[in-house]
Design a protein around this nucleic acid. Structure first.
Lengths: 223, 223
DNA sequence: TTGCATCTTGACCATTTGGTCAAATTACAC
DNA sequence: GTGTAATTTGACCAAATGGTCAAGATGCAA
């Protein structure tokens, strides 16, 4: 698990949580994700998070020692699930199928957890004050590892020459765009990823463009 | 010019500005772009903007009636230049050359005005409270118009079938990603678009991927 | 130089907001 | 049921911050 600094742990021995604690922490983190993703760290207020979690501000501060602690916990909570799909890229698989699966997973994330995407984007755009060490550490290693996988596919003549890191960036950019800029997309098309038809259209467009872009063709949908 | 609502104009007859006014407004808008793009609307403080502009908070409020007024003016100031490249897409040109030129312009914007990109991203991610009308109006019309251009190229058999709007989204996503997430990109690669080599690499990767993606090949660089 | 409009500022105010604390309430082991 | 620890809250505080205002400084036309 990726840890977010912090010496004073706000999550003591994970098993040592009462039912009430478990429930309230979960309520708080949900509310915090909603609030932070919509307003950013500065724009969010502890009071509103507490209200959305159905408790008083004082009580919320009984579970998390400060606004920043809530923020860090929220980030940590989403970061793992947000970066997980890349880990599934399988060196043994066929490039077309693997990349298509990765893209699909990323779009599904954007559709299912748009708030997480926006929170992450916000954090990075502010200079990644909390997660910079993770970006430079775990994430960098993961990207290196998966770049190696892609490079091997290229070396094996299975796909066109392309900088693997740039390819990963482009997949991130295109897929996350639909979550981060969903308001703009809705303003321009009237739809967003919550519309199943638009979701399929989008997945198809991105997959086709990127696979074609690296000299592959979309694999059949026989799963 | 795209106007940002607001009945009480903070920019009276454009010609009627004294030298002092012109200079100070410009200093303020520069400082505001820097501050708002780094901290977002809520995180920015009028005091810091004033300091960066080299004047007192009171004096800044002599030129702009409120924090929101500064924010609106800053947005209006960058919006036009930010959306301009799309307008240059020429129906009479060849798709490969036109798209390559558009992509290049967008990457140049990301390299030259990353703060503008982040400010715009921030505004949209917060729900576009200020610019939603523009997105739904002028921008929507512009995108429709240019989608028509792309669709005509497709109908003429000049490029592969693709949803033109989705193609535009993907160009926006990939190019702006390098400005909005430059911290992440720097953490992962050690470089950003201010590095000429990385700039060229990036332009090449994006252009190649997208043009190949729509069945085109990059045009020669004989300009 | 004079007089007026423009420009600039420090003092000040009201509100918001993150965080503290003591007291009250509730959950639960025995 | 009793007692202790966990939970919850309202009252309160200090700092930050957007904005006002009256007074002073400066620019400039005559």
């Amino acid at each position: 698990m990726m840890s977010l600094g912090g010496q004073a742990s706000d999550t003591p021995k994970n098993g040592g949580l009462s039912r009430i604690q478990e429930r309230n922490r979960s309520l708080i983190l949900d509310a915090a994700l909603s609030e932070f993703s919509r307003k950013g760290f500065s724009g969010a207020t502890v009071e509103r998070i507490a209200a959305e979690a159905g408790m008083s501000k004082s009580n919320l501060l009984y579970y998390f020692s400060s606004k920043e602690a809530i923020y860090k916990a929220t980030l940590a909570h989403i970061l793992e699930v947000w970066l997980a799909p890349l880990k599934t890229l399988d060196p043994g698989g066929e490039p077309a199928r693997e990349l298509a699966a990765y893209i699909r997973q990323k779009i599904e994330m954007s559709a299912t957890f748009p708030e997480a995407s926006r929170l992450f984007a916000n954090e990075v755009m502010q200079g990644a004050p909390q997660i910079l060490p993770i970006l430079e550490g775990d994430l960098r290693r993961l990207v290196s590892e998966k770049s190696r996988v892609i490079q091997d596919w290229i070396d094996a003549g299975k796909m066109r020459q392309v900088d693997p890191v740039q390819l990963i960036f482009m997949i991130w950019a295109t897929t996350q765009h639909y979550a981060d800029f969903s308001i703009q997309i809705k303003a321009l098309t009237g739809k967003d990823l919550s519309d199943p038809v638009f979701f399929e259209e989008t997945e198809n467009s991105i997959t086709t463009l990127i696979l074609n872009g690296v000299g592959l063709t979309a694999p059949g949908n026989d799963d």
